[in-house]
Amino acid sequence: MAEVLLDNVTRRFGGIAAVRELSLHIGDGEFVVLLGPTGAGKTTTLRLVAGLERADAGRILIGGHDVTRLEPAARDVAFVFQQYSLYPHLSVFDNLAFPLRSPARRLPEPEVRERVTRTAELLRISSKLDSKATRLSGGEMQRVAIGRALVRQPAIFLMDEPLSSLDAKLRAELRIELKRIHEVLGATILYVTHDQIEAMTMANRIGVLREGELVQIGSAQHIYEEPSNLYVATRLGSPPINLLPAGVLPVPDAPAGTRTIGVRSEHLRIGKANGAAVQGVVTRIEHLGDQNHLHLTVADHRLVTLIEAHADLAVGERVDLALARPLCFDAAGVRLGGS
């Protein structure tokens, strides 16, 4: 394992910068998740570290060595693709052994066997070792693909939305498994996703990307509670943060220049109509089981918030609203009054 440094890296495709002057440091043994919508440059960043794309400017260092001009094979990285990139005509065992049997590595066969067996146990696919890769279910295939990265003990694991093509149950399972593997192996992992739950649950740090630029990086809690601007604020949170023009709801001690208020569930105090200054109308209640989504209308603006499942509210009812320490943004969308 090793630390990885991206230093002002730029990659253009036909004049359009997919990644623009991106600098990022991934500590040894750290799990960093890059979060952003499609086209934000997440995958390109990953491919740049792997060497599958060449940087037009900037440097990439792995374990202190400049690898900017090196081939993927010379970089000692492992890559898990979004698609199950298995060698279809090989068995699971041979798929897992494939990177170890590289002539560049020349591991003795007993050690190959030992490492493959250990990895298969870690991923709970030991019983499938003799199966053909194409005979596996989607979840098993992706585990084999992850396993092929794990057998190598590379400097860094690069994972490109490895769970996105799996169903929800499997995704939740593998999420926990990946986190466990990270803890067991102390692996350095750079992980790309557009799924905020994956980002929140697995990352030591989350980097939020927009149009090839790193907008903010920090712990999941920091990104959630202290977003540097509107874009980052809308990336995390479920239901998504409500954005209201300043003045719709009174904000005690709002910083000067506040134009937009970001309201999450925890910022909103809801009570039975009791003559408060601002009132909303309940327009819809969505039952989620343990909690409900409450849709409100406040002076023609819509709000969605979480409330407890058995809150005594009905559609059409008026409620008192008050804000507690919401997020304030200026005209340019930059957060005001942050710590």
């Binding site: 792997a50 599958l52 698609q83 990139s85 060698y87 990177p99 560049a104 590595r105 693909a145």
Partner: peptide, 20 residues
């Protein structure tokens, strides 16, 4: 992406030809 995976797995062009 199968070739890209093989490249990251340090398979030579020759090995990529024979095994993919």
């Amino acid at each position: 992406y199968i070739y890209e995976a093989a490249e990251v797995d340090r398979a030579s062009k020759w090995r990529q030809f024979w095994s993919i």
